[in-house]
Amino acid sequence: MAEQQEISIWFFCGILMLAYGVVLVATGLTEIHHPPPTVLAELQPTLWWGVLLSLFGGFYTIRFRPGKG
């Protein structure tokens, strides 16, 4: 998007994924000793998916943060 001072669409994507990643990591940590009654819960999918989303979201949040130019 052309104008200056504009918030990039990628920043919106990044910040949402980062927030979700943090929430999932926190949830995943609490599930280590109390896994939910789902199939393959022993693989800790919530924790690992949270880590992945945090990395993805963190990268986009920093890379496209407002004012970076």
């Binding site: 979700y20 789902t38 998916w49």
Partner: peptide, 12 residues
Amino acid sequence: LIRYCGPGLLGL
């Protein structure tokens, strides 16, 4: 979704 996703992933 319900089969594999517990709290958090289900919300997502």
